[in-house]
Every structure is written in C-alpha cells, then in structure tokens.
Amino acid sequence: MDLGELVSCVGSLSCLVTQVSAGLTIGLLLFLVASGLTLIFGVLGLVNFAHGTLYMLGAYFALSAYAATGSFLVSTLAGTLGVATFGLLIERTLFRRIYGADVLMQLLVCYALILIMDDVVKIIWGGDFLKMDMPDTFRRPPFIIGGGIVPLFYLVLFGVTLAVALLLALCMGRTRFGRTVRAAAVNSTMVASLGVNTNMVFAAVFAIGAALAGLAGALSAPIRSVVPGAGVSILIESFIVTVIGGMGSIGGALVAALLIGLTRSFGSIGFPLFTEGLMFLMMAVVLLLKPSGLAGKHPA
C-alpha cells in the first residue's frame, strides 16, 4: 500500500490526466463487452458464459483483416460484423433453444462452445499468441496534456467506445426498435400478440451483443496479445461489471465499467499489490449494500 503516492497523484494534474484517461479508456473497452453481456441477459434471459469467446473471435477476425488489407477501419469492421454474423448463426442454431432454461443447461452449452471455438481458433490461427499491427499514425509520440501522457491510440479507443456507448443508449432509449426490445424483455408474449416477430428481435439483440464484444476484441487487438482462450479473463471482469452495475442494466454497466477502469488505474498507484483485489472488494461492498447492483431494480 502506498497511500502517500496516491495522495500525491491525486494532487498532481499530470498524474490525474494520465490515470484518468487510461482508466476511462480501459473502462469503456470493458463496457463494450459487458454491455453485450448484460443486454443479452436482460432481454433473452441467457447468461452467455461464451461471451468472452465472441471477444476473442473479434480480435482474430480483425487481425486477419488487418494482415490482408492494412486498414484499421476494415479490421475493426471485420471484427464487429464478423462476430455479429457469427452471433446470429449461433443464436439461430443453438442459443434460442435454451432461452429461459436452467442456468446449468446454459452453462453446459456455453462451455461446450468455448472449448469448440478455442480448438477451431487453434486449427485456423495456431495455438501460439499473435500480435496485430497498427497504422504508423497511431504510433506517434503521445500527447502531453497538463504534463500527463495520453497516447493517440488511446484517444482513438476512447472516442470510438464512447461513440458506440452513446449510440447504444440512443438506440435502446429513443428508437422504435429500442422500445420493442425493452417491451419484449418485460413480456415477449404480449409483444408477439401485437404482430412483432419476437424471434427476429431476439436474434437482432444477440447479434448486437455479439457485435459489441467483437468490436471490443478488434479494438484491443493492436495492444494486447491475441491468443486462444483470451476471452476468459475479460469474461470474469465483465461479470464483475454486470454484477456491480445490476444484471440487465446497460446504464449500470457503463457506470460499473468506468468505476473498474478508474479503480484499476488509481489502484496501481496506491495499492500496487492489491489492484486486482480492489475490483472484487468493490463487488463485495456493492452486493452487501445493494444486492441487486447499482442500477438493479429487482431483488436477487
């Protein structure tokens, strides 16, 4: 524990800029994954334990697309749309059969998918870790703002993830599709009786959730190792976010993800040996004080 260092950091503009920008960026990336997870859970009642696999596939699709085209835009789109398509495929063939089923059945199906896709990835891309390149533009020296360090690529990540978060909020809160989704989450039978094809709505929701995970994987690929099984650790963090935020709450997931990002960022200064533990501590405190999560409305 180094509280003196933490106090000194909070009192220093350069430290605040560096840590806050890094914490928000990592938090927003985490939000992309967690929002898909919570969206799918909230609407479909499915605890998608294979959500991390979608993140991993996004990274691999992006890596291959970048190697083929050298375009960051194309690789990001390939990761996002490729995983959305894959999500649609598994939703229609697999997951629609287990909506509302016992959680152990869902776990079994998801775990099978994790194992199968890890092996498929090994067959196609190999078992070793890979690294995706990035455009030279993103490798320019970092910006110095108020003495703090902000890399250009992190600004790009921040901008893209924030835009997607806002777009998701608009889509779910202000559009006819969003209203239909929320209505279907409350009572899908009633929505179907009004002439809405709820199967299509469910498929679309799953595809959007998958696309968000794929986008997170694609955006992370240039700065993280791309490897079979990469989804496991991100899945654990995403579950922490959904539990803290309130399961099914996208707004709660956003707040929780940013909190996790900032906690990790400042925790590395003040609690360098307990950064990981801080996340779980935060989850425990939230569960004790508000068992349904920060934005949860339903008792556990």
Partner: peptide
C-alpha cells in the same frame, strides 16, 4: 435503462 429477465430464467445466485 433496466431490462427485465425472462420469468423463470436464472437467478443471480444461480
């Protein structure tokens, strides 16, 4: 926004 779980779906404890 809060999205509701399917009735009979998994609980948080589960």
């Amino acid at each position: 926004m809060m999205l509701k779980t399917h009735p009979g779906g998994p609980s948080r404890r589960g």
